[in-house]
Amino acid sequence: PTPPYLKWAESLHSLLDDQDGIHLFRMFLKQEECADMLDFWFACSGFRKLEANEGNEEKKVKLAKAIYKKFILDNNGIVSRQIKPATKSFIKDCVMKLHIDPAMFDQAQTEIQTIMEDNTYPLFLKSDIYLEYT
């Protein structure tokens, strides 16, 4: 069978589909001081997956605010710097007006994912962390 670390080189999704892959990629991103990008990406996925059942509404609002505060509000943060201004305004509007929607972070997640695919992911595959692991 193909060893997991070879699968990680196939695509960003193959890497993020494996716990060890995530762990190693996060170590690399931490070294590059951009681990928040990965945390944000997973936070967006987790937010979208929240069940729409009764009583969850309060939790969703709280979580949307927490994601907004941690990753988007601070304009100097790595995630905030990489997301388009229009996308940030959209999320801010949703949070302020309490228009909480499972897809409200989708655009921002896509933007961060594109940057990881074009930039940090290829760098990771060439990094000492990955090469030593293999």
């Binding site: 936070a43 996925s45 939790k59």
Partner: peptide, 20 residues
Amino acid sequence: MDSEDDLLQKCITSAMPKQR
């Protein structure tokens, strides 16, 4: 009720794949 940080951390973990 969880603090914002706990909630965020749980959310991040919930989106990760389960152990092989």
